[in-house]
Simulated assay, not measured.
Amino acid sequence: MAASFSQVKTITAQSFFLSALTINRMLASTVFKQTKGNGSASNKALKTTPFGRSDAFTRGGFAIMPHATAPLSLMLCAKEAKLNFPDDVDGDVLRRLEESGFDFLKPTTIDFNVDFDYWPPHPDAVSKLKQFAGAIEIYEPDGEYSGYILFNIHQILSYKLVIDTQENVTSLVAEYGGVCESWGVLS
């Protein structure tokens, strides 16, 4: 008997990709057998891709199906698998979001805060943040709290996205006493 996704305890990025790729190919095969070639893919020529051979049913390793999108297989795989986050503060937040039922497959707005050693922040730091993020909001100190700059991005939330964004922004504003080490989403 083959293992079901509910029996998998830990999923690595590679096993997740391979599972999604396998499901995509199975779904594509089923759909195209039922449509007898009348689906949206009509090019039967074999092509070489970075993922190996590709035929009319696949492009770059993801299936082209007449009535089902490629992310369908990712959703099927991810719904059954428990995500595995590193054991740090950001991983803890992501685990709590997962436990509360947060949908990690849909793009969401992620707020990032940038704190500064000195207020107000240097104009060059503000300019760099505007170039990086587009729109920013500046929150002045209000007695209890020191000031900060907030920006947001709208993407699929992942540990890598959070860490990379914090590191990139911190390196942009570090020379001005800035650090990006807090973020949040509305769940």
Rank of each mutant, 00 (worst) to 15 (best):
N113D: 10
D111G: 02
N24W: 02
A70V: 09
D88P: 10
T48P: 07
R96G: 01
Q14P: 06
R53Q: 15
D90K: 01
L129H: 00
L129Y: 05
D88S: 02
V126D: 02
Y148G: 02
E98H: 11
A28Y: 09
I156V: 15
L105F: 14
G61N: 04
G143N: 09
S158F: 01
D111P: 02
L129P: 00
A2G: 09
E167H: 08
G101M: 05
V8F: 12
V179D: 01
L157V: 07
T10N: 08
Q34V: 11
P71D: 06
F17K: 08
K79H: 14
V173Q: 01
L94G: 00
L172C: 07
P121R: 03
I149R: 06
G39N: 14
V173T: 02
A125E: 03
S171V: 04
V126G: 03
I138W: 08
K130C: 09
I156C: 09
N24F: 01
T170Y: 03
S171M: 08
A2E: 13
F17S: 12
L186V: 06
Q7K: 11
S187I: 04
F151H: 03
G61W: 01
E80M: 12
F5H: 11
S42V: 13
D164V: 01
P121H: 13
V169D: 00
N38C: 09
F62A: 13
T12R: 00
F151I: 02
F112N: 00
R53P: 07
F16Y: 10
I23S: 10
P66N: 13
E99C: 07
G184C: 03
L105I: 12
I64F: 09
L72Y: 14
A81E: 07
F151M: 04
V93K: 06
E98I: 05
I153N: 00
N38M: 13
P71Y: 15
N152E: 04
F5L: 15
K79L: 15
I64P: 03
I153K: 00
P123I: 07
Q34I: 10
K79G: 10
G134I: 02
I64L: 12
I110M: 02
R95V: 03
G37I: 10
W119S: 14
G134V: 09
A20S: 13
F5E: 05
S40Q: 14
K33N: 15
F104G: 05
V179S: 06
I64N: 04
R53A: 06
G39F: 08
V173I: 07
G177V: 05
D90C: 02
G60I: 03
D90T: 04
Y148M: 07
L46F: 09
P86G: 04
K47I: 03
S158D: 04
L129I: 05
T35D: 10
P121A: 06
V31L: 12
D124P: 01
P120Q: 14
L161M: 06
F132I: 01
S15W: 03
T170F: 04
A3I: 13
I138H: 05
I149C: 06
V114I: 01
G101R: 04
H154G: 00
